[in-house]
Structures are given as C-alpha cells and as structure tokens.
C-alpha cells in the first residue's frame, strides 16, 4: 500500500501525470459501475416502438452511441467492455510483473547456471511470435478471459524479467549488499529485503507498460475473433463491426471502442512517464 500511495503522490506532481491519473481513475470507476449503469445488457437486442429490431440505428436519445447490426446498444456494450479491458489489463499486468520480477531477481542475483537457463527461456519467449502464439494457446484450451489472462502472462513476463535482471546485476555489486552479507543475512533476506525494494520503481514503470500492452493485446485477441465468446470486449465490438461488413454504413460503431482504448492506454503511458521522470533522477543520485 505504501508503494501505491507514493506512486500516486509522485505521479500527481506533474500536470500530465495528474490529468492521466484522473482519466484512468474515471475509466476505473466506469469499469466497476459500468455493467450496473448500462441501460441494456451487452447482447440484448433492442426494438423500436413498432417492435422492429433496431438495426444500425444512428446515435439518438435512447441509444447514445447507436446500435449494431444485431440491434445491440453500443453504449451498453462499451460499458461492459470497459470492465473486461480493465480486469484483463490489471490482472495481466500485475501477474506479468510479479512473475517477471521474481525471475529477474533470481536470475540477476544468483547468476551462473540459473541465470543462463532463465535467460534462454526468455530468449525462446522472445523468439515466439507474440500475438499468434497467444492465439494458438487460446485455440488449444477453453477460450475465456481467465485463459486469456494466463496466456498473456505466460508470454509477457519475459521483458520485465530482463529489465529487472540487468538492474539486479548492477545492484548486486553495491556496498549495501556487501554490508548486508557481512552481517550474516541469507540470500532470501538480501534478495527480498535489500534488493527488491530498490527495484520497486522499475517494477512500477514495468507495470504501466505491461498494462498498456495487455489492454491493446486483449483488444487484438477480441478483434481476431479469439476472445471469450460470452464476454463483450472493446476488441470484440470492433470484430463484430468488421465481420458484419456493415461498418461502412455505421461509423458510430467503429469509433467508440478505438477511442476508448486510445484514451485509456495513452493515460497509462503518460502515468508511467510522469512517474519515471520524477523517479529517474532520484535513482541516479543514489548510484
């Protein structure tokens, strides 16, 4: 919690960080309450007063963002989709960084054979085609948002691990580690009490990157039609629009999901950057 608090405090210092935090917070709130305030269900068909299916209705008072070719309310779909994007994004980012952080710490600290093996694993993961590999993983298992999260985590931790490892290797040489060792601290203590706290700023920036990536990747999976068929995501809205071949007649169908992703991910990037700008000179001072 302490890290979280200081993260907010640090990011709040810059104007772009503040604006981005507000935007991100707004999206977070929408993701939580979205399904409750959504006027229609995500796959509910809407009919007009005459009982006719509302196909491709342009935005109106009843349907702020219009409807899809199957008569679904786009605003409601967007609100449900916000939940998916946020849930998948946050869990994936968190998992990615936790795995990457631990692998990076272990590889960087112990070095030698453990390091060599872990680095070969990241080599292999780096050599795999990112999105196609996730799709293969998904096509071989049940397709739901949990397997999507797992599949993304499985591939994404590699970058965090490499960055953390490099940092740990330079930290390992420093005096306070040697000092801790002379006082008889064991490896676990040194790793998690002495080194890990110094890696935290790095981990926090990694989380923002992972979050941005996870949101875009989740959308891409949905767009390629490999998403959870029971859950609406911003990517799957775009997939429906594209696959229906009707997007040319209904631009209101295409704009909202893309704009939402863009705003959300941009805010995440700017939060990461604002944090880094404050934290980096401080990191350098400590060196």
């Amino acid at each position: 919690m302490n890290i979280f608090k200081s993260f907010i405090q640090i990011t709040w210092k810059s104007t772009s960080g503040r604006i981005s935090l507000i935007i991100f917070g707004f999206c977070l709130v929408l993701a939580v309450v979205g399904p409750h305030i959504a006027p229609y269900g995500p796959n509910e068909r809407c009919y007009d007063a005459a009982g006719k299916l509302l196909r491709l209705a342009s935005p109106s008072w009843d349907h702020w963002l219009g409807t899809t070719v199957l008569g679904r309310d786009i605003l409601s779909q967007m609100l449900w989709g916000a939940q998916t994007a946020m849930l998948v994004g946050l869990l994936t980012a968190l998992g990615t960084v936790v795995i990457g952080l631990n692998f990076g710490l272990i590889a960087g600290y112990f070095g030698g054979r453990i390091d060599a093996i872990l680095m070969r694993i990241t080599d292999i993961l780096l050599g795999l085609p990112f999105l196609p590999f996730i799709i293969v993983l998904l096509s071989l298992t049940d397709r739901n948002i949990w397997t999507i999260i797992l599949a993304m985590m499985f591939v994404m931790w590699r970058s965090t691990a490499r960055i953390v490892r490099a940092e740990v290797m330079s930290l390992r040489q420093r005096q306070f580690i040697a000092a801790a060792r002379t006082t008889g601290a064991n490896d676990t203590d040194i790793l998690y009490r002495e080194i890990a706290p110094n890696i935290m700023p790095l981990a926090v920036t990694s989380i923002t990157f992972a979050l941005a990536w996870a949101i875009i990747t989740e959308a891409s999976i949905g767009f390629l039609g490999f998403g959870d068929p029971d859950v609406v995501s911003w990517g799957s809205i775009l997939y429906d629009a594209y696959a229906s071949q009707m997007m040319y007649r209904a631009p209101w169908w295409v704009f909202p999901p893309g704009i939402a992703i863009m705003i959300l991910v941009t805010s995440v990037y700017f939060i990461g950057r604002a944090y880094e700008e404050v934290i980096n000179p401080r990191l350098q001072e400590r060196m």
Partner: peptide
C-alpha cells in the same frame, strides 16, 4: 496517442 490506438482500428 497513436501508439496507444490499436493498429487494426487505425486500419479500419
């Protein structure tokens, strides 16, 4: 912002 937009959406 451009980097944050999904490229398939930009294509559409």
């Amino acid at each position: 912002a451009l980097q944050s937009a999904p490229v398939f959406w930009l294509s559409m």
